[in-house]
Write a protein that binds this DNA or RNA. Structure first.
Lengths: 145, 145
DNA sequence: CAGTATCCTTGCTGATACTG
DNA sequence: CAGTATCAGCAAGGATACTG
């Protein structure tokens, strides 16, 4: 059984409710667990989603193609991740009725609006990895000594 | 695409460690599991880190202050998350030798260079949450029916 | 207040086997 | 090729109790 489960109904939590903006500062985003923002953020920032989106940015890809490109991902997790992204409207799945079967994945326009941000994130990481490595070494030396 | 928080990269090609990039396409980031980029990305994009960084963006905060603001976080996970962020050089921990003890957390300059990107991410999520909710409803109706 | 230590449950994850 | 189904292992996460 897929651990998909049925999430709550679409209209269950809308930020526009006054109940959602009671004790929060206006400049701060709603951080409650049941809020949409948290759920979506957890989804796109999970272990594999960023990787998949980054790869699909460049071109349409097939299942095993993605599998080969993403080091360490299992068949199951790629399947689950793609399904999640498809459900969120970020990835479009196209089945070509051929033999052998061919399925291609591509980013939706919605996902394309997210690409810039993801690039920034990856870019930041690449640029500061040494700085972070140094901070870690420093921390470990101070605390672990 | 409206690129709001585009912190454009100063000196993008200056990833001095070339050992990490050998057989990948130049436009694609290294996706191997043992690569720093993957590890750091997993760290800053985890369940709680984004939340903590967002809250600290605004001001210095104390432990229980953060705990109160972040709905659903346990004392343990806040402690672990803060420790991770501190180790990565993103959060600075300051102890004031008072009674009762006071400890304050603030973002480091390194973390501040990441704020734009995080804001973009949160902003994107806020702006597209309804669209995603609709996509989910559509998906569930088609598949789950 | 600001944590750490411990235990225990959840659910993520990967390996394997099987279907269309 | 493109997956789903099932199961087992392990680590993340939460609850509780305790320390400085």
């Amino acid at each position: 059984m897929a651990e998909e489960g049925t999430l709550e109904s679409p209209g269950s939590s809308r930020v526009t409710d006054d109940a959602c903006r009671d004790d929060r500062d206006p400049f701060q985003w709603d951080s409650r667990e049941d809020c949409d923002v948290r759920q979506i953020l957890d989804r796109i920032a999970d272990k594999w989603s960023l990787l998949v989106i980054s790869l699909l940015e460049e071109r349409t890809m097939r299942f095993n193609e993605l599998r080969r490109e993403i080091d360490g991902i299992s068949q199951r997790m790629l399947s689950v991740t793609l399904r999640h992204l498809e459900r969120d409207g970020l990835v479009q799945r196209t089945i070509y009725p051929e033999v052998p079967p061919r399925v291609e994945y591509r980013l939706t326009p919605l996902a394309c609006t997210l690409l810039g941000t993801i690039q920034s994130l990856v870019h930041w990481t690449e640029e500061h990895q040494e700085e972070i490595a140094r901070a870690r070494a420093e921390f470990d030396r101070s605390a672990g000594a």
